[in-house]
Design a binder for these strands. Structure first.
Lengths: 230, 230
DNA sequence: ATTACTAGTTATCGAGTAA
DNA sequence: TTTACTCGATAACTAGTAA
């Protein structure tokens, strides 16, 4: 018997939503068509094919019909759901890339030492960062592209503040690990020049010293990303 | 921007399975085509359309490409998954129907009083059934059709046994409720005449007396069905 | 090896309509 | 009202092939 066509997925899901798992439910092809965004004729065809494939059972009396999902049909939906669930939950929530240490003073270095930020770092990250930032130059385009999408995710949000004269923007921190050893945070600044080929890190430690790395050393970075939807 | 087409679902899922949630992964159109059961050309087109719709991002270098799912693409998959999950878990696991009491001795009545069965009823259901079975005649075809699919589900399994001379088949019990009051079990027998217009019930109580019902009374039955997959 | 175009085929769809 | 047919339009796909 034929496989479940992906185009029939919505139709099957709709029957399930109407309570057709164990009981025959009354569904007209017109209403089904509307629900799945297709014509009445297409809905009719969908039902015919689903019946032929053994995914639903129909009872027609006069011009009305009752529909019920078969065990096979339900298993099919469950299987797909399990597959998707596993894929989604098992997908590693990390971004890994390589780059080289660069000295170019990160724009964040100065600001990150301001009290308005350090106070928040202490409470939200649990430490006051070592003064200065570590700058990593990313060579491969695919890495910088991937990093530029980071802004879509939450991270740890450091709020903007004002010192009376001017305001300083928010900072998003993403838990990272350099060379599989040093814990640190990648920082995304609200006010930045959007050059994603250089990324900045803050850490409790002096990363350069701790790793005994210097200018142009290659480093491997792993960034953890948490989803913000349930 | 266009919606995610259902035909692209498998493609997106495959990219996710390759680790493309946050990192760019190398996927050839040939391998993708094989995975989704389509041609290399179709795979190529899928990627083009997914990119156009903002669901994936591609980086092409020479004749190879790296692919990454966008935040939008991942949300789309998650949303669909959540929808399916809810539908599947919220679908009521019960079958409801109406029928009339009938006196025709159920075939099970005699056998259900045998020690080989009663011992198991006691341990698996927690009670020894009142002698005899209640027989309900089902009038509407849609109900008998729905019941005939019950055999695909597990229920409480009473094992076959032998008394030395002959063997007696298994019995499957499904927790039921008659007229929203009396707890009982619908029984499916391994050796039965497969007439699904009459169903039999066993109960701790004398159902007729308890409900003060007699021949040809109408009853409403609700059968609970448990899934046997995770 | 790649990706992706063009051209031809098949599947899917919707309008019109019958029953 | 319903379901579902025919048929023409469009979308999706594959084969062949170029780059």
């Amino acid at each position: 018997m034929a496989d479940l066509k992906t185009q029939h997925l919505l139709t099957l899901a709709h029957i399930l939503s109407k309570g057709g798992k164990h009981n025959f439910v009354n569904i007209t092809t017109t209403s089904l068509g509307k629900e799945i965004g297709k014509s009445q004729q297409s809905a009719s065809l969908h039902l015919k094919e689903l019946e032929l494939g053994g995914f639903i059972e129909r009872i027609q009396s006069g011009r009305k019909q009752s529909i019920k999902i078969t065990h096979k049909g339900f298993v099919e939906l469950s299987t797909l759901n399990n597959l998707l669930s596993k894929l989604i939950s098992k997908s590693p929530n990390s971004l890994t890339f390589t780059g080289t240490i660069t000295s170019g003073m990160g724009e964040g270095a100065y600001y990150m030492s301001m009290k308005g930020y350090t106070k928040q770092f202490k409470s939200k990250l649990g430490y006051i960062p070592y003064p200065g930032t570590l700058n990593v130059q990313i060579k491969e385009k695919k890495f910088s592209e991937a990093i530029s999408q980071l802004s879509n995710y939450e991270g740890t949000k450091i709020s903007p503040f004002s010192d009376g004269k001017r305001t300083f923007g928010w900072v998003k921190c993403f838990k990272s690990k350099i060379n599989n050893k040093i814990d640190c945070e990648l920082i995304l600044l609200e006010r930045t020049h959007h050059d994603t080929t250089i990324v900045e890190f803050i850490s409790k430690y002096n990363i350069r010293k701790s790793l005994k790395i210097s200018e142009k050393s290659n480093v491997k970075v792993k960034i953890s990303i948490l989803d913000n939807f349930s």
